[in-house]
Design a protein around this nucleic acid. Sequence first.
DNA 1: CAAAAAACGCAAGAATCTTGCGCAATATGC
DNA 2: GCATATTGCGCAAGATTCTTGCGTTTTTTG
Lengths: 168, 168
Amino acid sequence: MRLDAMDVSLLTLLQREGRLTNAELAERAGLSASACHRRVRALEQAGVIDGYVALLNAEAVGRGLTVLVLVTLENQRRETMQAFETAVEQVEEVMDCYLTTGAEDYLLRLMVRDARDYERVHRERLSGLPGVARLVSNIAMRKVFTRTAMPLSAGQAGSATRKAGSGA
Amino acid sequence: MRLDAMDVSLLTLLQREGRLTNAELAERAGLSASACHRRVRALEQAGVIDGYVALLNAEAVGRGLTVLVLVTLENQRRETMQAFETAVEQVEEVMDCYLTTGAEDYLLRLMVRDARDYERVHRERLSGLPGVARLVSNIAMRKVFTRTAMPLSAGQAGSATRKAGSGA
DNA sequence: CAAAAAACGCAAGAATCTTGCGCAATATGC
DNA sequence: GCATATTGCGCAAGATTCTTGCGTTTTTTG
């Protein structure tokens, strides 16, 4: 889907405030409510907007500590990797998992309560994951910043053409 | 703020579908619309809910490639770190920045179009950041999974007691 | 165990969404 | 270069949803 300047405005606003009312969104973007509504629906149906979520305060829900874990597998056979990936997704403290280039195989981002909680997760969950040869844990001493909003520019297109509609 | 089982239900639902109507949310949680509405507002005002955002399809907006960069500074003087942190936040391709334990100082997560685009960002943006001694780039060959929703359990409390109300 | 506090559901007025319609702007074909 | 098709726009009104006052029920507290 090709995005014009108005789409970029709408997406930029919704990336910051996903619960703007359609009327408010329209006004800020300088568009009528009906046109705005139709554009947003089109962006949702084209899969440009993947969904809407509430972001919680990590401290407030007892997950104030982020830990970044580098994982090295015993080998890189397809079955080994598949088994690891399936198992790691079951660990609810793991927020993201990337297969990476470099010396290690995977990078995980975990959110836990505190160091003591991480010790528990490491012992009860991570160390038992299949195929793991080595785990290197890097504690995030401080979150310098985190974003969910991607900066956009008009004219750029991708390959998404599905008809999804998850969190609308 | 102390969360009971109903709060956990509401937060769990809103973490997945942040744009549920109040009526729908209430029904799924087994609560009247008015009580539901009041609880959500309280969670927002207590800062448990930080805000609501639209999540975009990274491919569709031309940011299909994630790169994880380990940064080592020349030294760890306060001014060096401060200068780096201020500058790195200006680089719009950088989504997260953590100050970490371990051999390196910072971990960055970038979202870019492709390898060619990353080469440009590396050359024009990252290599010029103040205080940087070494950059180790790990390309995410594949996103195994990513989540924004944290699993919750009742009774847990944190330290958030502010009266924020950003993206509501 | 009684009083106080907190939370609930109902219901109605206010706000918002959603769509049909006619018009304007842009794209297409000759 | 111009006629025509296509796309997108704004208006307006019926349908939906939000939001809050109120009386009742449940939970907490002394």
